[in-house]
């Protein structure tokens, strides 16, 4: 009953889920660094990514072309739409609050998440959808456990995105400008960087990350109008564990939460989330400055 291959199986799904959490957590981190805002609408962008992609591949009244779009095209379109939506969100709702207290802006994002969820419920009802698997194939056996091929797609995509993002922040001028304005907004604007643009860009990047997360999990986990709550929550937790500033910390945080969650399920499937939070809070109490976060003050 309780053997290593079962444990390995849980570990594999934990790592896969964790990589998705990391992606969502990175979205929280990118926005927080540019604007000090915790964007609670982040989970809704994840939901939108998956739902729009599903709608585009499904033939029916929703698609303009009658028949559904081919999967790759649908995916790219969904990412573009959600990214534009992220920019629009920043432009219409976040930008007017430039002079408001940060907590007020956070409350606004809560309102936005309720709004987006409400609209999504109107469009897609309360049904669950799924995308077709990106690659077909038999599960790959590994030491008694199996890896569903799609898990490799999820892991591969998240790892590639993480590397690209890191390269963007380290090597490109725009990425460095974003980091500069995260460190010191005033200083950055003295150097000719427009912090406002950086904020807009950060919303675009995190909407892109969120939509990709929503799309890659759509084939294995079902997607519906309300998945954003749970995933957004996980992303927030991951970002906090990562100290909200550290890139590597957030990624480690994602894997940590994914693995702890999977191991919690080994102990008790009902109390899985409770076990996860007891462990995470315990870790925070041992290291009050964040598990991976550096001491800042």
């Amino acid at each position: 009953m309780f053997n290593l291959s079962v444990l390995l199986q849980y570990l594999i799904s934990g790592i896969t889920q964790g990589s998705v959490y990391a992606l969502i957590g990175l979205g929280f981190m990118v926005i927080y660094n540019s604007s000090a805002i915790i964007n609670f609408a982040q989970g809704e962008f994840v939901m939108l990514g998956g739902m729009i992609a599903v709608t585009l591949v499904t033939a029916g009244t929703m698609t303009i072309f009658g028949a559904g779009l081919p999967l790759p095209l649908a995916i790219i379109l969904a990412i573009v739409v959600v990214t534009l939506f992220g920019i629009l969100f920043q432009h219409l709702a976040v930008r007017p609050l430039k002079k408001s207290p940060v907590l007020m802006v956070v409350i606004m994002t809560i309102g936005a998440s309720i709004f987006i969820r409400g609209v999504a419920m109107l469009i897609w009802n309360k049904d669950s959808f799924s995308l077709p698997l990106f690659i077909e194939g038999k599960p790959i056996p590994v030491f008694g456990a199996v890896i569903v091929p799609h898990y490799l797609v999820i892991l591969g995509t998240t790892i590639i995105l993480m590397v690209l993002l890191q390269l963007f922040f380290k090597l490109t001028l725009v990425g460095q400008a974003m980091r500069a304005s995260a460190v010191n907004r005033k200083g950055a604007s003295l150097c000719g960087i427009r912090p406002e643009r950086m904020v807009k860009l950060s919303f675009a990047i995190s909407a892109t990350l969120a939509s990709i997360a929503g799309i890659i999990i759509a084939p294995t986990n079902l997607t519906s109008y309300d998945i954003g709550i749970r995933l957004g929550l996980k992303g927030f937790v991951v970002a906090v564990i990562g100290g909200l500033s550290s890139f590597v910390g957030t990624i480690c945080g994602g894997f940590l939460v994914g693995i702890v969650e999977a191991m919690g399920a080994v102990i008790s499937s009902q109390y899985r989330d409770a076990i996860t939070f007891i462990i995470l809070i315990g870790m925070l109490l041992i290291r009050p400055n964040g598990i991976f976060g550096r001491k800042t003050d």
Partner: peptide, 17 residues
């Protein structure tokens, strides 16, 4: 109602910061 509720929340924050 849910969508309106969210929208109102956004508007209150924007107009009464």
């Amino acid at each position: 109602d849910i969508a309106f509720y969210g929208l109102l929340l956004i508007l209150i924050v924007i107009y009464m910061p």
